[in-house]
Structure formats: C-alpha cells, structure tokens
Amino acid sequence: MKVISEVMFWISNGLLIPVVVGLLVLFVLSVLQLGGLFGARQRYQRRLKRYGVLMDGLKIQGLAPLTAQLEKANGATPFEQVALQTLKANEAERNYLIGNYELELERRLSQPKILTKFGPILGLMGTLIPMGPALVGLSTGDVGSMAYNMQVAFATTVLGMFASGVGYLALQMLRSYNHRDLVWLDYINDTLSHGSK
C-alpha cells in the first residue's frame, strides 16, 4: 500500500506543471474574453438601437422599414445577414436559417463555457497538489518549503476563480444578447408565416 500511495503522490506532483500551464492559458483567455465582452456589448447596443423600434412597430408598419434597414446594412453582422435571408426565404428555409444561426450562437459560447467549467477544476487541482508537499514540509520543520507550496496553492485558486468568474459573466451576457436575436428572428418568421396564409 505504501508503494501505491507513493506512486500516486509522485503522479499528482507531476501534474502540477500542466495544471499551472493550463491555468495561465485560461487566465490569458479570460482577459481576452473581458476585452471581447466590451465589444460585444457595444455591438448589441447598436443593434438594439437600430432594430428595437422597427421590431416593436412591425405589426403596425409592416416589414418594409425593417427590410430597408437590413438592405442598407448589407449584412454587416451575422444577425443582419440571417435576418435579410429570412425575409427572402420560404418557410422551410427560414426555419433552417434560424436553426443554423442558433447552432452558431451556441458554438460561440464554447470559450466562456470552458472558462466556467475548467477554471474551478484546475484551480482546485492546483490547490490540492501543493498541499501534499506543504504538509511534508510542515512535518519535517521545513517552513520555507511549506510557505512556497501554500503560495502556489493560493495563487492557483485565485487564477481558477478569476477565469471561472469571467467565463460565467461572459456566458450570461452573451446568452442574453443571443436570446434577443433569436426572439427577433422568430418574430420575423412568425410574421411572414401569418402573412402568407
């Protein structure tokens, strides 16, 4: 049993470097994600300002003002591309376009999901792995080794929680933006469906 526990100890200690590298990668991704969130918010606000009133007045004004605005934008964003194609498609094609757009939006959430899930996992691993050597240092009276290992443990925890927090924030914000796009596309689709009957 002692041999097995020593092998497990060495294996877990060997995982520390990959865990720390993984946390550093997640930290860089989370910083980039924060910058991307600022841009995503600005794009969403512009889209809301440009199309919110048109969508609210769709029942009264009809599709003509919305079509004119989308043609003027000339597919500058993925939403505008899909919305314009939806206006010109039949019912089956509209459902296909909206379904594909929804899948694409879900695919774009993969990075925030990775940050949210793997941040705490790697943070916890980075916390627990140095605790073994820290306890060994404590038992032998090597306070310097114990302090260093505890420093690594706390640093990895902080990095993991930071990455996870940014990922969760990004996931919630981007999902709400995506939901608004899908509500609008469904509304256009329903309006066209009822108009053709």
Rank of each mutant, 00 (worst) to 15 (best):
M1W: 05
Q45M: 05
V7S: 10
S193W: 14
M125R: 10
Q81L: 04
T127W: 01
V21S: 02
S193P: 02
L185D: 00
M146A: 09
A64S: 12
S110G: 13
T156K: 03
R107A: 14
A155H: 00
Y51N: 02
V21C: 01
V143N: 10
N100G: 08
K2S: 08
K88C: 11
Y168T: 14
G195K: 15
L37N: 04
L37K: 03
A76L: 13
T140H: 13
N90D: 15
G165E: 07
I60Q: 15
K72R: 15
L87I: 13
L66D: 00
Y96N: 09
M55C: 03
L122K: 02
R175F: 08
L84P: 15
E6F: 10
T77C: 10
N90G: 06
V31Y: 01
K197C: 06
P112C: 05
R107I: 11
V152F: 03
L48I: 08
P133E: 01
R175D: 15
V25T: 11
Y177S: 15
Y168D: 07
L182I: 15
M161Q: 07
R180T: 12
L97G: 15
L16H: 12
G119C: 07
Y168M: 04
Q111L: 10
S164E: 04
L135D: 07
L24N: 02
Q151C: 12
Y96T: 06
F79L: 15
N189V: 11
Y168W: 07
L26V: 08
P78R: 11
A163Q: 05
T140W: 07
